[in-house]
Design a protein around this nucleic acid. Structure first.
Lengths: 231, 231
DNA sequence: TCGGAAAATTGAATAATCTCAATAATTTAA
DNA sequence: TTAAATTATTGAGATTATTCAATTTTCCGA
């Protein structure tokens, strides 16, 4: 990872998250004084599960995969993070350790914000804190959904969920599949790579999805959602 | 559920969570004005996944099981909540819907706090909001841990995790197993009831646990943790 | 205390999913 | 551009876990 030469001033940042809009100029300047920008190259780990977490990370510009590591190299992918999203928020309090790993799917500029500074802003500014809590509300919902999938559904439903997630509106402009291997998709579905490949072929043969090289498109979202629902 | 006649004044409440200590008296009085207390009997649902969430719930005195529902009556249990814990915090923002179901394991007194009031306190008092964020940090860690278990481990590891959780320090005084069926334990491990029973017998025969009626005790925590770790 | 209902247990058969191995396709680096 | 390395695909066999059925035990209300 390199230092990123043209570090942007937080007060002028065009990619600031909604929560930063709740800060008054002096608070933004405070963050600006207590952050660093770093460029991570495609494939580099931005944080590792279990590592000491000194900073809250913020994706100034990039695309990141968030996952849980597994001893036998069979990772579980949780989500794709885009520009203007946080990484490792939960290290501000508690164990001071990252709860998951993240890797850059393409070259990504990451802001490292001092944890102490972040904490101070939360305590000083309830509106800022409220926005962070909003984020946690949505986050919790996603995690419960993931638990529901892994715990209750079998292969077909799990893969359907993964595809619906990866093809959703939010990621539409990211050409997400060009950055993902079959193993990555398997990680999102919580399946082995081989099972994933087999099921993808099935779905293709049933004209539920279309596969062109790495690109996957959903042809029949109604049916796919039905598969997801039935598990 | 009944109305609970002796509704406690929040300013005098002996069971207030750490976060309430951050409120000034007028804020506590504000909560007091905007809450109701209800008694839920053992076995009654306190909230249901998908139901409209008008309140943030707080366990004034009780014991609660939090779970995700499954169409084929095979629920996933997430955690046991005790006195002084929140239920449904994440409904304050977002979908206005509970992300999970909860059921009283024994008669429980629950405070229903108006969501709008709660939101107001968060925005007004950053220290209060910070305590809530602290809670979310810990919560997220637990959820990631659950995902790790369901996604990466097989039967033995999953049951070991469930037992370690149910026997942990925090629940030691709750006689937790007297409130749980084999099906409930299976729900914590994410297994079928039959598999759970079989494995419990195995663990007992290997002297790793002791089973006396409903009560389960861990005899060899080192070995059980090892089983958990190896998955 | 008795009788029925619910919960726990056990075994056998079945289903789901993974692993391993072999091959094909694609990408990368020299 | 070519060769090597990585990734994707396919099949067969093995493993893991569930389901179903039968039986035993426990619990609860009359």
């Amino acid at each position: 990872m390199d230092n990123f030469s043209e570090s942007v001033n937080c007060l002028k940042c065009k990619r600031s998250s909604k929560c930063f809009k709740k800060l008054i100029p002096s608070e933004l300047e405070f963050i600006n004084q207590n952050k660093t920008q770093i460029l991570y190259r495609k494939g580099e780990n931005i944080c590792k599960h279990g590592a000491f977490a000194s900073y809250v990370l913020y994706i100034s510009d990039g695309l990141v995969r968030l996952y849980l590591e597994n001893p036998n190299n069979k990772n579980i992918n949780l989500k794709i993070l885009k520009t203007s999203e946080f990484i490792g928020l939960s290290s501000i309090y508690g164990d001071n350790i990252y709860n998951y790993s993240t890797v850059a799917l393409k070259d990504s500029v990451i802001c490292l914000i001092e944890k102490d500074s972040f904490r101070k802003l939360l305590a000083d500014n309830g509106h800022f804190a409220s926005e962070i809590i909003k984020w946690y509300c949505e986050n919790e919902k996603q995690l419960f959904n993931k638990i529901q999938n892994l715990g209750n559904k079998q292969m077909h439903g799990r893969l359907a969920d993964a595809l619906l997630y990866l093809c959703n509106q939010d990621l539409l402009n990211e050409q997400i599949f060009s950055h993902l291997s079959r193993k990555d998709i398997a990680g999102f579905a919580g399946l082995s790579t081989e099972s994933t490949v087999r099921l993808l072929t099935e779905l293709k043969n049933e004209n539920i999805i279309d596969i062109t090289g790495k690109e996957i498109k959903i042809l029949n979202p109604v049916l796919l959602k039905d598969i997801s629902k039935r598990g």
